[in-house]
Design a protein around this nucleic acid. Structure first.
Length: 233
DNA sequence: ACTAATCTAATCATACGCGGTATGATTAGCCCATTAGT
């Protein structure tokens, strides 16, 4: 009993989803059992008994009554597995063949499982869609930050050219008293070599005064962090 | 180990209501389904 439940759970949510249509289309599900052969067998069987069901009953398939289905549903909700005793009891109570009850439970389990799978699929799809949306938002945010970065970079360049070389005092400081790096003028983010006027000159500057972009600041994220650190964003 | 009962998965066939869905029934299981009782 318990083992069957575990097995069912495993089959309910397999680790890898395989499209059943693919399996069927590739004939791997039932070992390529020929349909024609089954049809022939069925036709022969029907022909043999004159197209009637066992016991000479109604040849047409009869649906279970609402009451019967209701009782079966009730029983199914209590326990999805059907022990022999319960099956016989139910069958007697509903006026059905025990085999009919067994078949009903088999079909009910199968359809319950496919319903669960559908629900699980819907949930996963919803989560997937939400993740895609979140990714879009993040990408937009990155674009926005990059744009701000470019603007800030332009502003920096403009400020530098406005202050010009004359604005840099002999000790290598700009008008704001910050140390000016002598990196490539084309990029304010180049590592450059920082002029340390204080070295040997007795005029020591604190780290806060150093306008310097380190080597590791070569990715967008690091640049953003760096700009944030300096309150430029 | 053997066997009967039972299971899952796939499929068919019919009912119900108008092309497609719901549902009862059948079949295979291939390193030959699994489980439980003997």
């Amino acid at each position: 009993m318990e083992q069957y439940d575990d097995q069912q759970q495993q089959q309910l949510f397999p680790s890898s989803y395989v499209d059943s249509s693919f399996v069927v289309a590739n004939g791997a599900a039932q070992g390529d059992r020929p349909r024609a052969q089954r049809r022939r067998r069925r036709a022969a069987r029907c022909g043999a008994d004159g197209g009637e069901m066992d016991g000479g009953g109604d040849p047409k398939k009869r649906r279970l009554s609402d009451e019967q289905v209701e009782m079966l549903e009730l029983s199914f909700r209590e326990e999805r597995k059907l022990e022999t005793g319960r099956k016989v009891h139910l069958a007697a109570e509903l006026g059905l063949d025990p085999k009919q009850v067994a078949v009903w439970f088999q079909n009910r389990r199968a359809r319950h499982k496919s319903k669960l799978l559908e629900e699980e699929f819907a949930k996963l799809k919803q989560a997937h869609d939400a993740a895609i949306l979140h990714k879009c938002h993040l990408e937009n945010e990155v674009l926005r930050l990059k744009e701000r970065l470019v603007v800030t970079e332009d502003e920096l360049t403009r400020l530098r050219s406005a202050t010009g070389s004359h604005a840099v005092s002999g000790d290598g400081r700009d008008a704001m008293g910050r140390v000016v790096c002598s990196g490539s003028p084309s990029s304010s983010f180049s590592t450059g070599t920082c002029q340390q006027p204080g070295v040997g000159g007795g005029d020591h500057l604190g780290d806060d005064d150093l306008l310097y972009v380190p080597d590791y600041a070569n990715s967008d994220n690091t640049l953003v962090e760096w700009f944030s650190l300096y309150g430029m964003i």
